[in-house]
Computed example of a mutant assay.
Amino acid sequence: MTLIFGHRGAKAYYAENTLASFEHAFEMGADGVELDIHFSKDGEIMVFHDFTLTRMCGVNGSIFEYSCAELKQFKVQFRNQYEEIPTLDEVIDLILRFQEKSGKKLMLNVELKAGSDFYPGIEKKAMAICYNKLSKAQVIFSSFDHYALTVIRNLDEKALLGVLTASAMVAPWEYVKKIGANYYHPAYESLTSRFMSEIKTIDFKLNTYTVNDTTIAKQLFLQNINGIITDTPDVMLAIRNDIGQ
Rank of each mutant, 00 (worst) to 15 (best):
L96Q: 13
M28K: 02
Q81H: 11
A69W: 06
M107W: 04
F74S: 06
S102H: 05
E90P: 01
E65H: 02
E44H: 13
Q81A: 04
A69E: 15
K75R: 15
Y82T: 05
K101D: 12
T87E: 15
K105Q: 14
D31R: 05
H38S: 10
I95F: 01
Q77M: 09
G29S: 04
V33W: 00
E70Y: 06
Q73F: 03
D31T: 01
F51K: 14
D31F: 11
I92V: 11
V47F: 10
M28F: 00
G58D: 01
I92T: 05
K41W: 10
E44A: 15
F26G: 00
K104S: 04
V47G: 08
V76F: 02
G32E: 05
E100K: 10
M46D: 09
I37A: 11
F78M: 03
L35D: 03
I63M: 06
K72W: 12
Q77Y: 02
L35P: 02
T52W: 04
F39V: 11
Q81F: 13
L106G: 04
L88V: 10
D93P: 02
G32V: 02
F74N: 13
G32C: 13
R97C: 09
E90S: 10
V91E: 05
F74R: 10
M28N: 00
R97W: 05
I95Y: 01
L71Y: 08
L96I: 14
K101S: 08
Y82K: 09
F98E: 09
G61H: 02
V91K: 08
E27G: 00
K41A: 13
V76N: 02
E65G: 03
H49M: 08
A30K: 00
M56S: 09
F78V: 03
G32H: 10
I85E: 06
V59Q: 14
E27Y: 02
E65S: 14
K41F: 14
G58W: 01
T87K: 08
A30W: 01
I37F: 11
L106A: 07
I37H: 08
G43A: 05
S102G: 06
H49Q: 02
S62R: 14
L53D: 02
V33Q: 03
D50N: 15
K72A: 15
T54D: 15
G58C: 03
R55I: 06
Y66Q: 12
D36R: 04
E84F: 11
L96S: 08
E65A: 05
R55K: 11
